[in-house]
Design a protein around this nucleic acid. Sequence first.
DNA 1: CGCTGTATTGACCTCCTTCAAATGCGGTGG
DNA 2: CCACCGCATTTGAAGGAGGTCAATACAGCG
Lengths: 258, 258
Amino acid sequence: MSYKIRSSDIPLAADPEEAAMFRPLLQRLRYGADLTEADYGRLSELARTRQVGARQQIIQQGDRPEDVHLVLDGFACRYKVLPNGSRQIIALLVPGDFSDLHVAILGKMDHSIATLSPCTVADIPRATILDLIGNHPRIARALRWATLADVAILREWLVNMGQREAHHQLAHLFCELLIRLQAAGVGDTNGYSLPLTQEDMADVLGLTSVHVNRTLQLLREEGLIVLRRRRLDIPDVERLMLYCDFNPDYLHLVKRVE
Amino acid sequence: MSYKIRSSDIPLAADPEEAAMFRPLLQRLRYGADLTEADYGRLSELARTRQVGARQQIIQQGDRPEDVHLVLDGFACRYKVLPNGSRQIIALLVPGDFSDLHVAILGKMDHSIATLSPCTVADIPRATILDLIGNHPRIARALRWATLADVAILREWLVNMGQREAHHQLAHLFCELLIRLQAAGVGDTNGYSLPLTQEDMADVLGLTSVHVNRTLQLLREEGLIVLRRRRLDIPDVERLMLYCDFNPDYLHLVKRVE
DNA sequence: CGCTGTATTGACCTCCTTCAAATGCGGTGG
DNA sequence: CCACCGCATTTGAAGGAGGTCAATACAGCG
């Protein structure tokens, strides 16, 4: 909940309290485009935030939502549930992630979205998004970039599931989250708060929670991770990345600005 | 190679030979937006096509390609190769699919693209795409829609890999291709030419070719598919769809036009 | 007719699942 | 502060889906 932010990084909006909430978003969008002060201001004005408890639905499959949602704090996820009851988590949404820019275009949700931990969420009217896209080219570019970065993650997840075994999968996920959370300005250089249950992780990786449990033990024994009380620490980040063949390029988070 | 097209569906461009090549694209884009005759004309004028043999690289990971590629005939794929040599196919590109609209934005390819069968490919300069996006809103909308439909497929693939067993995975893939190829105006109501090897299918589904082989036998024994000489026939489409819990909604191919 | 790449088969192995029970832990109310 | 509840984690034993390796059969093609 307490962000590590170099306060000089980002211009502040009128209400410092609310503006602070948007830092993860702004911090992230900086990677995608050169935004001006005015752009930042406009984005911060989106603020109409609300608190959502853990494990709450945000959008249901089949909905035609009128708002686009933006996660400002906490963890949420996209997921699909099969008739047999199993759930596949398709994406983890961390601070600064949009729940669904594309809904404004495709119309009908083909998956659901729910919180995993308690979250702060901003609801942005579809019209606002369309206006931003139509009339603010730099912001449009940044949003397009954000969407595409999400897809890149999706692709890497597919590789992860298809080609790696459980211990590498898990390690890879932890590395990805480390980088993503850092890019959002949340979390440490070698750790972060990870509110997922082992069942959640299982549904991300296409495994069972039992096997996730055993695999976590393995990673712990190897000294690759320290995970307790919903906090993950990575004693030797480089070692973990090597272990699971993690290459951050796909995240497209190499700073373009600055 | 011979398309089933109701010739009244789509306006023709100047050179009937070349225009015919673009039918899969146009047919597909019709799902995404109401294009005018002029729009269709503009798209057909993209024609600068070439033939590519089977198993040829089109774009390599790390490239910053100057062209966007469009598959007009044949099968291609996106894929990533891991250090250990294993390949994960991330997407199958069938006639009418763009290889990479987003490259124009993200810049650097985080995966590679290659043909699987002999293909007809159109190379479209990045500038042309940017012009279309900037100056032709309906086309821009259609392209955006195409990109998002691709992502939806990616999500479903993740579900497929994570939650279904091999026989359902394969069946699901076959159903998806049936619908997609039909939408492109290629292939029959209950079959299509499928130039993939069992190894290719394995790399799509995250399995081994050996296991794909055994699974195919199983599907054949069940009478669910007939696959020989690179042609797949589905005796009872509905039955196959039920078998693997296939719901075409995620393809977003419900006709919006007409 | 022989070559090359793909499909098929068999034997064996292991990663991961399943089921079910036990343990631990944070919170809540007495 | 303790007892208790609900949820998450942990453990065990046994089975199964899918992998590995290597040999064989087959098909298309020059």
